[in-house]
Amino acid sequence: MPLVLIARGLDPVLRLWQRCTGTGGMITFFLLPNMAIFGVFVIIPLVLNIIYSMTGGVDILLKDRSFIGLGQYGRLLECQDYLVSTTCREDQFWTAVRNTGTFVLFQVSLMVCVSMITALILNRKIAGRGFFRAVFFFPVLLSPVVVGLIWRWILQRQGLMNLIVTQLGFDPVVWLNDRFFAFSAAIGVSTWAHMGFYTLILLAGLQAIPKDLYEAAEMDATPASRVFWRITLPLLGPNLAVVLVLALIRGVQIFDEAYVLTGGGPGTSTLFITQYIYEVGFASFLRNPGLAAAASILMGLVLVVLTLIQLGLSRRAEKGNAR
């Protein structure tokens, strides 16, 4: 146990420090490692990001870059018709924005529906509830690379999906080479991977609803559908809102599993904003860190708004659950 020895060895040193600086010095000592890392790896980058977004050039070090004002934002937002991405100067950015928007719309609706149904079912008196709760949580633990590769393997030409499809009498499809199917796969796979997490939040909300409400409804012989609309849904409201906004926040940032699954293709049909930032900033031949920074700030603004909504909602949900 070298850790214990280090801790014991530290004690005399820290005693001296405590004698010299008092409790205040110790508070600083306890906070320092965490706050220093926060400062260096979160706060400073946050400030630098704004500066980066106002500079041009291909160099990554700030001292080699030239100030160009709001030019990067102008470049990102320059568009003749915002609905047609090809008329924009940065057509890839707008493709990514449109893809992400479509993705979020469908994935979040699917996610909320599926996890809501699962939570309602897991909230019933069924045998092996703990087991089934774990079943739906299993993919949440898998890494995005593993998730992406598992599904790439299932959706490939000689894969399991084509086995099922041919058994049903249809022709096999190369799923990930088709724009529509690849996009649907990104939606389905990310829902598969994360629904267990949202199910658990909803389940916690369901279990916090006082049982006597249901007993009273049963006494009055209230129909089940009415119980759902008048008791379950209103009381679950705050949790449902948290799930909705959390799914939105994570949906906007979709990257890794979609990237491993499709690589953004075919063409740019599954190119999402985070991948755009990554490619413009690092991967592409003509990289442009300033442009990537500007795009990330625009995405950050959307996320800040969503997070503020979420913090407000989860405070309300906590009050609801504590009741």
Partner: peptide, 8 residues
């Protein structure tokens, strides 16, 4: 994903 470039 928001601070990718400056963090790098």
């Amino acid at each position: 994903s928001v601070i990718l470039v400056p963090l790098y």
